[in-house]
Amino acid sequence: MSSLADQYRRRGQLQGACLCGAVQISIDGDYVAAVGACHCSRCQRSAGVLWGAFVGSAPAVTVTGEVARYASTEFSERAFCPICGSNLWLRDSDNDAADYEFMPALFPEAAAFPLISEIYTDCRPAYVPLSGSHATKTRAEWEADNRHVEGDMP
């Protein structure tokens, strides 16, 4: 998320957990109280439909429980609960201070967060129309200014 997220930056506490409760996530500090959606093929495959996430600042995050990690690119990891399989986050793996992009449904309070951005809109499946007024970018528009993996997954 970009500077668009600045107006949604908050400082406080959020508590989240995976489906089975084996992984607990606490945010005590900075986070963005808004969701960004991604329709790239990697996110679609990972989440099963689309990837929606909100940002938590690394210093504010405490995770308890066993977490499995998958290197989805040479610069990022996707984390999940090894027991129930719940998606937990996407994060740059080449920077220890990188923010976490958390799955909103892990945190009850995030149900009230607005959708503020949607990327890879030209890759969006027909069965996932998102409504409302939010920023959008096509694949080409997003990739022109952001680190990404070349090409689409087969």
Rank of each mutant, 00 (worst) to 15 (best):
33 A>D: 11
73 T>W: 05
79 A>K: 01
87 N>R: 13
6 D>M: 02
6 D>C: 05
21 G>Q: 07
118 E>S: 14
75 F>G: 04
5 A>E: 12
151 G>R: 08
42 R>L: 13
33 A>G: 06
54 F>D: 02
141 E>F: 05
55 V>K: 09
31 Y>T: 03
100 Y>L: 09
117 S>C: 11
9 R>E: 14
37 A>F: 09
57 S>D: 15
68 A>F: 01
38 C>M: 07
4 L>H: 06
48 G>D: 08
132 G>D: 08
124 R>N: 06
29 G>V: 10
54 F>V: 08
150 E>S: 13
30 D>E: 15
141 E>S: 07
50 L>I: 13
112 A>N: 11
108 P>I: 08
52 G>C: 12
24 Q>R: 15
142 W>T: 12
24 Q>T: 14
4 L>G: 00
14 L>A: 01
118 E>I: 00
134 H>Q: 10
23 V>H: 03
54 F>Q: 05
35 V>E: 12
13 Q>E: 15
36 G>N: 12
79 A>T: 06
141 E>Q: 15
123 C>F: 09
111 A>L: 03
78 R>M: 07
24 Q>E: 13
1 M>W: 01
55 V>D: 02
110 A>I: 04
39 H>S: 14
45 R>A: 09
144 A>E: 11
115 L>C: 03
141 E>W: 07
152 D>Y: 09
19 L>R: 11
5 A>N: 12
128 V>T: 13
79 A>P: 01
47 A>C: 14
58 A>V: 04
70 Y>R: 11
50 L>A: 13
5 A>D: 11
27 I>T: 01
4 L>C: 00
136 T>W: 01
125 P>I: 09
126 A>M: 05
3 S>N: 13
10 R>Y: 00
48 G>C: 10
97 A>Y: 00
66 E>F: 02
129 P>C: 01
140 A>W: 05
65 G>C: 06
79 A>N: 02
30 D>M: 08
50 L>Q: 07
140 A>L: 12
69 R>C: 06
22 A>P: 01
32 V>R: 02
76 S>H: 00
143 E>I: 06
47 A>V: 00
54 F>E: 03
47 A>D: 05
35 V>Y: 02
52 G>Q: 13
100 Y>V: 08
47 A>K: 01
97 A>V: 04
70 Y>Q: 10
38 C>P: 06
68 A>I: 00
65 G>N: 05
150 E>V: 10
34 A>W: 03
98 A>R: 07
48 G>S: 09
23 V>G: 04
127 Y>W: 15
24 Q>Y: 01
141 E>M: 07
25 I>S: 04
89 W>H: 13
6 D>Q: 13
40 C>P: 06
116 I>E: 02
131 S>D: 14
2 S>V: 08
145 D>N: 13
128 V>K: 01
80 F>I: 00
108 P>G: 08
49 V>R: 14
9 R>S: 12
83 I>V: 15
52 G>V: 13
148 H>R: 09
15 Q>L: 11
34 A>Y: 02
141 E>C: 06
86 S>A: 13
23 V>A: 07
143 E>V: 08
124 R>S: 06
79 A>E: 04
150 E>R: 11
107 F>R: 03
13 Q>D: 05
102 F>I: 04
22 A>D: 14
20 C>N: 09
75 F>E: 03
43 C>I: 04
54 F>S: 04
146 N>L: 08
134 H>L: 08
24 Q>G: 10
130 L>M: 14
54 F>A: 06
68 A>C: 03
67 V>K: 10
92 D>F: 14
150 E>D: 15
119 I>W: 04
